[in-house]
Design a protein around this nucleic acid. Structure first.
Length: 635
RNA sequence: GCCGCUGUGGCUCAGUGGUAGAGCACAUCCUUGGUAAGGAUGGGGUCGAGAGUUCGAUUCUCUUCAGCGGCACCA
């Protein structure tokens, strides 16, 4: 039979040769690095005898697929180590994830991270044992019986759920045997030792909170020690830019236990926050939005009418006053409909784009809270576009353009769209959903942006687009959203007079670009590692003195900068200039204008920029001009 | 909400069954120094909260709150 190599070379081989044999025939060193073979793009174990020819590829640890196999093996070796050290443990599943793997286990007494050393030690021993990893195909019922006999109830349950007729493959290494689709390395030695157990967490069996809680052990695994080291280093770097840490270090905000999930904004953080809001104000004002503001506490009656009470009152903060029950708004839309309903609206008033930076409260589960990323009290750059049905497409397209342009101003260009359609729990008839999904789909297609489907994930009142951006260290964040809503206008009885003189229902488009400003703030801090673009920087320049005699001049320089609209401060502290430079640099102050006797005499400043050792002496006027230019916010 | 871990001055962290310590920060003084930490002195903590065990608890136990890591959730 014939095989074809990736370079197009064709070779005849004997039936029954294994991937290993083929690799060895090319070069022994290739065989050593090999982890699997791809036959017509289907991955197979190296030690499986090939019976048909085709295109082959030797997969090594350096291939993405090879790394996956390696990580999968790491999971198996972990499971083997667990069973050896703690035989009473039941094992469940152990898949590959980004950067590594995990294994979910079940046992009475939970493991702790103190057990990690022993586990890693045992894993290394298993690697040293070089146990051959052997694939076996089992009869379904035999396999179920087998796993039940050794007390692995979870495994038996998994097999029961595998459709009849599908091959049940087990992999054996030493005395350990596990259900697995494969492929796997030929032996445990090939895993190498570039792995590390990372953390311990709880996870529900089959991801369902009604099921028992298992223990999940996370690990990372790499082809080489170097890659492992690099990965650990990357994690350290990510930790350094954690917005919670930087928020404290840069004195931007804090949170405390008396107000879990809510933010105390410090002057510097609030400056950034306002700058973000004002930027969005400028952008949407150009797109003919109007801004409004509506109450935070609203009578339950309105939430019942809107449908929020029924669907989400568990997550709403309630306040009882006199005989009434008020709820804090989790979103602005019902209030916006109230404004829309004031007076009679004509089709000439549409589309009406109503924006609000309203403070919303959602009683998120305690375990969901996470710094600024998930809070209970937040403000969105929210707006609702009331329009006629045939405007959905053009409004959506205009929104997508605006959103992409805004993201670009913040340096985010890698944006993906998820299209979420009707969820199980929803309001409105199927006809309405058909119409809404159809219109939104048409709009996405017209916008020309790429999208992926996200079935069943829509809002209860309509389908939605979710805009996911990727930050500087490759993490994805869902920020923007656009939702088509035929339901709320109906439930809250919004209408307008059409050109035909009749009453009609407007469509509502719920949309946000940044999403929650709190969250976007956190993303920005992490993306820029605290060094924000100058237009967002809470302090744009500090005038620092070398000697006390320059104090008056320093204040004068600072006043000039402030008069020109720059956020400037003076540093007159009784410290050496190198101390001030260090301190201000740690604070990520981007421009330091150093003034001493010389500068005071000559009416100049000596400018130092964050991240550079260079000093530039310039006239005060030139410096002000430069700062104004550099700090200009995007229009 | 669920599982696990953590909670000591503003921050980072050490420590102990006999009510606490370092560095940084802060204050005062000396120093007026030219681009990433000058020196001296000093103030500051009922060890997250509540209960229990104990002669005695920051230390051990339980409860609770919050944070962290995940899971579930995310209108």
């Amino acid at each position: 039979m014939q095989i074809e190599f990736p370079d197009g070379r064709i070779q005849s081989i004997e039936s029954g040769m294994t991937g290993s044999d083929i690799a060895k025939s090319i070069s022994p060193s290739l065989e050593k690095r090999a982890v699997a073979i791809a036959l017509n793009d289907e991955l197979k174990d190296l030690n499986v005898a090939l019976t048909t020819g085709g295109k082959i590829r030797i997969i090594t640890k350096d291939d993405p697929e090879g790394l996956e196999i390696l990580r999968h093996d790491a999971a198996h070796v972990l499971a083997e180590a667990i069973k050896e050290l703690y035989p009473e443990t039941q094992i469940t599943i152990g898949p590959v994830i980004e950067h590594g793997f995990y294994y979910d286990i079940h046992r009475e007494k939970p493991l702790t991270t103190d057990d990690f050393d022993a586990l890693e030690q045992r894993m290394r021993e298993i690697v040293d044992r070089n146990e051959p990893i052997q694939r076996e195909e089992w009869d379904r019922n035999e396999a179920i019986k087998f796993f039940e006999s050794i007390g692995e109830k979870f495994k038996a349950e998994i097999i029961r759920d595998i459709p009849e007729g599908q091959v049940i493959s087990l992999y054996r290494q030493g005395s350990f045997i596990d259900l697995c689709r494969g492929p796997h390395l030929p032996s445990t030695a090939r895993l190498g030792k570039a792995f590390k157990l990372m953390k311990l967490a709880g996870a529900y069996w089959r991801g369902d909170s009604k099921n028992p809680m298992l223990q999940r052990i996370y690990g990372t695994a790499w082809a080489t020690e170097d890659q492992l080291k690099q990965h650990l280093h990357m994690l350290e770097e990510a930790e350094k830019r954690d917005h919670r840490k930087l928020g404290r270090e840069l004195d931007l905000f804090h949170m405390q236990e008396e107000a879990p999930g809510s933010v105390f904004w410090h002057p510097k953080g609030w400056t950034i926050y306002r700058e973000l809001q004002n930027y969005i104000r400028r952008r949407i004002s150009k797109e003919n939005y109007v801004e409004v503001n509506t109450p935070i506490m609203v009578d339950r009656i309105l939430w019942e009418a809107s449908g929020h009470w029924e669907k989400f009152h568990e997550n709403m903060f309630i306040s009882e006053t006199e005989d009434k029950l008020f709820a804090m708004k989790p979103m602005n839309c019902p209030c916006h409909v109230q404004i829309f309903r004031q007076g009679i609206k004509s089709y000439r008033d549409l589309p009406l784009r109503m924006a609000e930076f309203g403070c919303c409260h959602r009683n998120e589960p305690s375990g969901a809270l996470h710094g600024l990323m998930r809070v209970r009290s937040f403000v969105q750059d929210d707006a609702h576009i009331f329009c006629e049905e045939d405007s959905i497409t053009s409004e959506t397209k205009a929104f997508c353009d605006l959103l992409m342009s805004v993201y670009k101003d913040f340096g985010f260009t890698d944006v993906r769209i998820k299209f979420s359609d009707r969820p199980e729990k929803r309001a409105g008839t199927d006809e309405i959903w058909d119409k809404a999904e159809g219109a939104l789909m048409e709009a996405v297609k017209a916008s020309g942006l790429e999208y992926t489907l996200n079935p069943g994930e829509g809002a209860f009142y309509g389908p939605k687009l979710e805009f996911v951006l990727r930050d500087a260290i490759g993490r994805d964040w869902q920020c923007g959203t656009l939702q088509v809503d035929f339901v709320l206008p109906e439930r809250l009885d919004a209408n307008y007079i059409g050109s035909d003189g009749e009453k009609h229902r407007p469509v509502m488009l719920h949309r946000a670009i940044l999403g929650s400003i709190e969250r976007f703030f956190g993303i920005l801090i992490e993306n820029y590692a605290g060094k924000l673009p100058l237009w967002l920087a809470p302090i744009q320049v500090v005038v620092a003195t070398v000697v006390e005699s320059a104090n008056a001049y320093a204040k004068e320089v600072c006043d000039v900068l402030k008069a020109e609209g720059l956020r400037a401060e003076v540093d007159l502290r009784n410290e050496k200039i190198s101390y001030k430079v260090r301190d201000l640099s740690v604070q990520k102050i981007q421009y330091i204008a150093v003034v001493g006797a010389k500068e005071a005499d000559e009416k100049t400043v000596s400018v130092r920029q964050l991240g550079s050792q260079d000093q530039t002496v310039m006239t005060l006027k030139n410096f002000v001009d430069m700062m104004k230019q550099n700090s200009a916010a995007p229009a």
